[in-house]
Simulated assay, not measured.
Amino acid sequence: MNDQGETDRRETPADGAEPTTTHAAWGAGHPRLLISSEQERLVHELHEDRLLIGSSTECALQLPGTDSVHATIVHDERDEYVLTLHGEGEMNANPDAAATHPGDRSETLRTGAQFTAGPWRLVFTREEFADHGRPYGGREGGELSDQPLQPPRPDYTGRG
């Protein structure tokens, strides 16, 4: 218990297991996009901090049949990959919902997040140990207020 008589959610669980974390070194976990259309399958490794996706020659990931700049993925200061969909397409997040990126068609990508651009389906994947989402085991151990917090994020200002 803390000074206010409340249970500290970061305490070691009664079973003695140490809390897990999904915080890892900057850019860890082999982040990449699995890309498919009816005819092709591609993999794009995410090494850049800003990736333009579209049909323009200025895009690092050029996909025929998309808008000139159809989407952007930014590797942000929290070591998250954030998608902004500029052109038509579907994404996991409801762009009308008040979420982590209100007012735009953006979402923080988690392993398995999918979006479309023209005839292409793109799936983000990153090893679980570095995905910053729910710690190993997902919902196991509770939901929302019952789920133990992860330790604070590392300071990524030094990028590593």
Rank of each mutant, 00 (worst) to 15 (best):
R50Q: 10
G54L: 04
M1I: 03
E127N: 15
E48L: 02
H23Y: 05
F115S: 03
Q114G: 03
E90K: 15
P95C: 12
T125V: 01
L42N: 07
L33Y: 03
P119Y: 11
L109F: 03
A71Y: 10
G29Y: 02
T12H: 07
S106T: 00
A130P: 05
G5W: 03
L61N: 01
L109C: 03
T116A: 10
A113H: 13
N2T: 05
D155Q: 13
A17R: 14
A130C: 05
G54T: 04
D15Q: 12
I53P: 01
H23F: 04
D146N: 15
E48D: 09
P102L: 12
E127Q: 15
N94A: 07
L33I: 00
R41M: 04
S36P: 01
L85K: 09
D104I: 07
P148C: 14
E107D: 06
T108S: 05
D76G: 11
T125I: 00
V69E: 10
Q39R: 13
E11Q: 13
G158I: 03
S55T: 01
G5F: 03
Q39K: 13
E48H: 02
Q114M: 10
E48Y: 01
L63T: 00
G137S: 12
S106V: 00
L83M: 08
P154R: 15
V82H: 07
Y156D: 06
G141P: 04
G112L: 03
P151K: 15
E127C: 05
L51F: 02
E107G: 05
R32Y: 04
G54V: 01
V69L: 08
N2D: 11
A14H: 09
E6K: 15
D104Q: 13
G65S: 14
D49P: 02
D131P: 00
T72D: 09
D15C: 11
L33N: 04
G138Q: 13
E140M: 12
S106W: 05
D131H: 07
R10H: 06
C59D: 08
V123F: 07
P151W: 08
H101K: 10
F124A: 12
M91F: 04
R105G: 03
D79A: 06
M91R: 14
T20F: 05
E143F: 13
R121F: 04
H30E: 08
R10T: 08
E90Q: 14
L149T: 02
A60M: 08
L42E: 07
I35M: 06
R41H: 09
V74I: 01
W120Q: 09
L144P: 00
R9W: 07
D3L: 13
R9Q: 09
P152G: 15
S55N: 14
M91P: 01
S106P: 01
